[in-house]
């Protein structure tokens, strides 16, 4: 395999998919973030922590512009990062993946990783808009979220390895095994300790947009890496 070519197409596909993710978020998630931060600001005024003054709004506009401008840049960085993991897994598993060509194989893998490393952890720890998170619990929440992603992703790999030992008609045992294992972890692992005080319709709509945004990344990275692989064939 041509190492440099492989690294370049993996990073490019991740960066492009991340760019798409950032643009999608900018269009569909930002309005909900603004709405949630509006509630957060109102809470600050009501509690007396901040005063509704021109200075407050000048400072607010400054950091909100910085935050919004970071949405797309952060999308590219996150996309390159997750795309790098996707590239490693794709290169190692390409020959075992079903599908007639690299685009289909890549899309199938993207679907599997979206399901095991995003959707299942999301069902336990769904995305929350600003106003929901408590700063005191952020480290605990980060540990729980990362742990669940790692457990789900690694256990999927282990059950896949186990499936290789079974006959073709018994491979379903591995899928059932993963389902039972991850359901048990789902029940055992502690809940998000934060209470939700924001309106639930805002939270739910934000979560839906979040899922659409992240899904746009996984579809994009699957298609782009598959197309680049077909075109350049690093191996």
């Amino acid at each position: 395999m041509k190492t440099i070519l492989f690294i370049v197409i993996v990073l490019l596909s991740g960066a492009f998919a991340g760019l798409i993710h950032g643009i999608v978020n900018f269009a569909i998630v930002e309005p909900y973030l603004d709405q949630a931060i509006g509630i957060e600001n109102q809470n600050l005024f009501d509690s007396g922590e901040e005063e509704d003054t021109p200075q407050f709004w000048a400072e607010y506009d400054g950091y909100r512009t910085w935050q919004k401008s970071g949405q797309i840049l952060a999308g590219v960085i996150l996309g390159t990062s997750v795309g790098a993991l996707f590239g490693i897994v794709f290169a190692l598993s390409k020959n075992s993946l079903p599908g007639a060509n690299n685009v289909k194989k890549s899309l199938i893998l993207a679907g599997i990783m979206w399901f095991t490393m995003y959707l299942i952890p999301f069902l336990k720890y769904p995305a929350n808009p600003p106003t929901v998170g408590d700063g005191e619990t952020v480290v605990l929440r980060a540990i729980l979220y990362l742990s669940f992603i790692a457990i789900s992703g690694l256990s999927a790999v282990i059950f896949y390895k186990l499936s290789k030992r079974f006959d073709k008609n018994k491979k379903i045992i591995s899928i059932i095994g993963y389902a039972i294992f991850i359901s048990a972890v789902f029940i055992i692992i502690p809940e998000n300790p934060d209470e939700i005080s924001a309106p639930m319709n805002l939270v739910n709509e934000f979560r839906l947009m979040s899922v659409l945004g992240v899904s746009s990344f996984w579809i994009s990275v699957g298609v782009i890496l598959g197309l680049l692989w077909n075109r350049i064939e690093p191996n």
Partner: peptide, 16 residues
Amino acid sequence: HELTHDMRHAAGFPCH
């Protein structure tokens, strides 16, 4: 943190 704040929330990472 502030630069990646919006993506952090949107991608489901814990924030605040």
